[in-house]
Write a protein that binds this DNA or RNA. Structure first.
Length: 275
DNA sequence: GGGCATGTTAGCAC
DNA sequence: TGTGCTAACATGCC
C-alpha cells in the first residue's frame, strides 16, 4: 500500500519522532530473510552498514533514503541505505528486545538499546546499501511532489497510451500508486483511460494541480490505511472514488464505477470523468 | 478454499 | 522504441 504520502509519513516519523533515529550508530545488522531482501548481498549489506552513523532520513518517490557516515580511522565515507516497502513493508524504531518478530526481515541494532526494524509479511520489500543512490533510483522520473507544472506538461507531451498507466509509471513521475492515481484523476475530471495525447495544456495543468493537492492531503492525514498493512493514517476517510464502487459520487450522486485499467482496479465517476 | 490486494520487474508481443 | 499484457514474487485477509 505505501505510496508517496505513506512513505513520507514514515520518513517524517523516523526523522523527527521520539526517540530520534538521526545521530544513532548501527551496531550490527540481522538479515532474517536472506533470499531477496538485502542488496548487493546479505553479507556486504550487513558488513557495510555495521558501525555506520545515521545522518539523515529522506524520501524519493516511494523509496526511503537513510544517509550514513562511516568512519575508518581518520577516513570518513558517506553511503546510503535505501528501503522500498512495496506492498506490505513497515519500517519502525523499536526497543531492541522487541525487534525480532514473526515478519521481521531486517533488523539494524543500534547503540543504546534501540533497533530499526523492517517487517514485511509479503516479502516483496527490498533494501540496498549503496554509495550512489542513483544505482537504485536512476530510472525514476521526478518526484511527484517536487515536479513543476512546466516539467510535468513537457514530459506528458512525449508520452502515449492511457492516463492511469502513465501516472503509475515510476519512470514518468515517482511516488504515485493505485489509490492516489484514481483520486488525482477524479479531482481533475479526467477519465482513467483517456489517451494522454488527447489532453490539452489546461487539462494537463489541472492534473498536475490535482496530483499536488491529493498527495499533500494524503500527507496531512498521515497517509491512508486501507487494510491491515499500513496503520495510523486516516486519508481513507477522504477518498472520493477509491474503494467506493456503487456508492454515490460526492459531486453528482452517480454511482462510482470500478473497472480494470492496466490490470489494476480503477475507480472513477462516469459522469464527472467522461471519456 | 478461491479470489482479492496497495508495488515492481522480466519477458514477450505488437 | 514505446506500450502494454502476463506472470512472478509471497502472504494474509475476507
Amino acid at each position: 500500500m505505501p505510496e508517496l504520502p505513506e512513505v513520507e509519513t514514515v520518513a517524517r516519523t523516523l526523522r523527527t519522532g521520539t526517540p530520534a533515529l538521526i545521530g544513532q550508530t548501527i551496531r550490527d545488522v540481522l538479515v532474517l530473510w536472506p533470499r531477496q531482501v538485502a542488496h548487493p548481498s546479505p553479507t556486504a549489506f550487513a558488513q557495510g552498514l555495521s558501525g555506520a552513523r545515521i545522518q539523515a532520513v529522506d524520501r524519493y518517490g516511494k523509496y526511503l533514503l537513510i544517509g550514513l557516515r562511516t568512519s575508518q580511522g581518520c577516513q570518513e565515507a558517506d553511503s546510503v541505505l535505501l528501503v522500498h516497502l512495496r506492498m506490505s513493508g513497515r519500517l519502525e524504531l523499536v526497543p531492541e528486545a522487541q525487534a525480532v518478530t514473526r515478519h521481521a526481515r531486517l533488523v539494524w541494532r543500534l547503540d543504546g538499546g534501540l533497533a530499526l526494524r523492517f517487517e514485511d509479511a509479503r516479502k516483496f520489500g527490498r533494501a540496498w546499501w549503496v554509495t550512489d543512490p542513483a544505482v537504485v533510483l536512476g530510472k525514476l522520473g521526478p518526484d511527484a511532489l517536487a515536479i513543476s507544472a512546466e516539467v510535468f506538461v513537457a514530459r506528458a507531451r512525449s508520452r502515449r497510451g492511457a492516463l492511469k498507466p502513465l501516472l503509475l509509471d515510476q519512470s514518468f513521475i515517482a511516488g504515485i500508486g493505485n489509490i492516489y492515481a484514481d483520486e488525482s484523476l477524479y479531482l481533475s475530471g479526467l477519465h482513467p483511460k483517456r489517451l494522454v495525447a488527447t489532453l490539452n495544456e489546461a487539462e494537463l495543468l489541472r492534473l498536475h494541480t490535482a496530483i499536488q493537492y491529493v498527495l499533500r492531503a494524503g500527507i496531512a492525514a498521515n497517509g491512508a490505511s486501507v487494510d491491515w498493512v499500513y496503520p495510523g493514517g486516516h486519508f481513507q476517510e477522504h477518498f472520493a472514488v477509491y474503494g467506493r464502487a456503487g456508492q454515490p459520487c460526492h459531486r453528482c450522486g452517480q454511482p462510482i464505477q470500478r473497472i480494470l485499467v492496466a490490470q489494476r482496479s480503477t475507480f472513477f465517476c462516469p459522469s464527472c470523468q467522461p471519456s
